[in-house]
Design a protein around this nucleic acid. Structure first.
Lengths: 108, 108
DNA sequence: ACCACTACACAGTAACACGAAGTAGAGGGG
DNA sequence: CCCCTCTACTTCGTGTTACTGTGTAGTGGT
């Protein structure tokens, strides 16, 4: 699938929140997971900027743990604010995708 | 619905293409149509920049016609390139929304 | 004269995903 | 022993996009 970057704006962060919510995990693994899920072109740099943003906005709790096969990992878990943000994201997605699908079906 | 602007990036242009494809129309009317369809916060300034972009990218054919109740209108119609772009947009939307819905259903 | 509605244009802003480069740790092959 | 690969995180700069604000202009109503 060719360039999805513009369409991902605003949704990729929500996807990251969802993944973190389903399991405490770290940047590199999140990137791999997204690649598996069909977001094939998402690269680490993108995810790390999102994770730093989440941290800066106080939506996640961060724990550093040694890895065994590389540098230590920064594990992320959602806090209450993060779960609220995730719920808000899904509400928006629901709203937007329903409108767009309706538009696609020919309008009214 | 609170701020959808980030999520609209990449999709709003496609919505405009779809509206133009369904009927030759002009900026002000497109804005009103989008507002009706639930994109309540979309304003004219946004649509005009999109229309200028479409024109610059050679996706539309433009015709100026007098209005009768205001300044002349610039009517937009898709050309072949525009219809191709629209098809590509829907393909991307289909792809992305299916992946995100799958992620929402709990992943795998 | 003033206001409301229609209609378009344009300069500036903020947010976001991405690319590129770098740092660092662990393990394996020649 | 050095190089390469894979894991893992960071940071700076870039391009695209939607939005905001402001301005212009035409028509009709009060």
């Amino acid at each position: 699938m060719d360039d999805l970057t513009e369409m991902l704006k605003g949704t990729l962060e929500g996807c990251v929140l969802e993944i973190i919510d389903s399991e405490e995990t770290y940047g590199y693994a999140i990137t791999r997971r997204l690649n598996e899920l069909g977001f094939t072109d998402v690269v680490e740099g993108t995810i790390y900027t999102i994770l730093l943003r989440l941290e800066r906005n106080g939506l996640v709790q961060v724990t550093k743990r040694p890895s065994g096969l590389g540098p230590p990992r920064k594990f992320f878990a959602l806090n209450d604010a993060g779960r609220e943000e995730l719920a808000a994201f899904w509400a928006k997605w629901e709203y937007l995708s329903s409108r767009i699908d309706k538009l696609k079906e020919g309008g009214r």
